[in-house]
Design a protein around this nucleic acid. Structure first.
Lengths: 242, 242
DNA sequence: ATTTGTATTATGTCATACATATAATATGAG
DNA sequence: CTCATATTATATGTATGACATAATACAAAT
């Protein structure tokens, strides 16, 4: 038997896959930018030699990803994909695995530890005042349970994200909020955070964070935030194995 | 003319939209989890009273988002949506606006500043040795240009992400890498980073970061990292307005 | 000139048929 | 009986043609 050339595994990708990549190539080659109109389904179908069904499914994918938008009679136009928005639909904590949830919660800790510099860069009286109001309201309500009242937690930390002045980060946080809540609640079920005793007995409250943000530096703020988040960090680090 | 009650705009959502939400409800109500099989297209179609086409398009969306997976003859099963993977297709830097790019680059700075605690929690000799190798190779090559050699930069920082032991974070970094490179290159075009002079004249090299990771604490590491990233921070903060 | 109707057009939906891949089963060789 | 191989059934994938729907342009009417 003659030596035969190894038989290449023939592409496993479906027709729709191919068409999708062809469409993306088409956009790039023609240097189309968001706002530009693209040919109609039937034209793509004929020039690619496939059925309208296939073209439609490929375009539907791109639409799902927010890359194109379709209007009746008007055809389709390229869109600036809103990276974040699509996930909102499916990012249901109950549909995510334990490990992913844990990692996303870690991500939250990372983000809040890392954004100090941007907070200091963009802080202004207006925002600080609003933060002040949030803290004041928090202190006024229930002096015993203030530490881990979820609503206040969200209000305060949410405001911080907003103050980062990074819209993408904000959207990201909005998106992950349900996840955070979910993990947070699950955690508080198991370990009663009120009983948690901080190292050196010192608890860093929202008020103290606010003061640090007013008078401190990014560095001191990071340290304060680390203390503030200590129970969460402990939980995340303890339950290690991924 | 009499004062008329404002006429509510009636729902503009398409059939496919409705079916999609119905499908998601179905999954939740039946407490389906990743791995579970779901009814076939035709069954959904008949029970919802719509054509297979519509069901198919709705399912295709969910497939595009990674929530379901389809295999011939086997039907469809719920999948753990890979949050990150979906971005890849559309996250072409050339398709993103300037502002989004900038914000993603900031996100990188935030992540690297924030992950210190996890690095220290998960560090082990093996990883540190590998990091050592990367640094050594870096030092060996070109003693003059070591600071901002892109490859080494990627190798070193990439390894850090890997050491965070957070797969989601890693994937996120993989995904954003092209964006980072893109922004990085554009930055170095304008401002020659080699000419950048660090505050107090002190430059924190990869080697110093490594030493801090070996002997220091999360706190000292954050400070070192902040110094190391100083030119990037400066650039990000200077060009402020979003 | 503003409104109202009408034709046009590209996407949205439907119905049906067939192709294709694969799990399940049956068949056959040893 | 065991294993490999062929067959069959089935759910998704693709194709085709038809009609519905909404948005636009333009004509007609007031």
């Amino acid at each position: 038997m003659k030596k035969l050339k190894k038989l290449e595994p023939l592409g496993t990708e479906s027709l729709v896959d191919k068409v999708e990549t062809r469409l993306l190539m088409f956009f790039k080659e023609n240097k189309l930018v968001p706002g530009d109109a693209i040919p109609k389904e039937i034209d793509f179908a004929t020039s690619l030699g496939v059925s309208r069904t296939v073209v439609r499914e490929a375009l539907l994918r791109l639409r799902t990803l927010g890359l194109v938008e379709s209007k009746k009679r008007r055809g389709m136009i390229l869109k600036q994909p809103d990276i974040i928005n699509n996930f909102a639909r499916i990012l249901d904590p109950t549909l995510l695995g334990e490990d992913t949830l844990k990692q996303l919660f870690e991500l939250r800790l990372i983000l809040e530890m890392g954004m100090a510099d941007f907070l200091f860069e963009n802080r202004n009286e207006e925002d600080l005042d609003e933060l002040e109001k949030i803290v004041a309201a928090e202190e006024a309500t229930d002096t015993h349970q203030i530490r881990f009242s979820l609503d206040k937690e969200i209000a305060f930390h949410g405001k911080l994200y907003q103050m980062s002045n990074n819209v993408t980060l904000q959207k990201f946080q909005d998106l992950l909020l349900p996840v955070f809540n979910y993990v947070y609640l699950k955690d508080t079920e198991n370990t009663n955070l009120d009983d948690y005793h901080y190292s050196e007995g010192e608890f860093v409250s929202h008020r103290m964070l606010l003061e640090t943000l007013r008078e401190g530096t990014p560095e001191t703020f990071r340290n304060a935030m680390r203390r503030h988040l200590e129970p969460h960090f402990d939980h995340a680090l303890k339950t290690g194995g991924r």
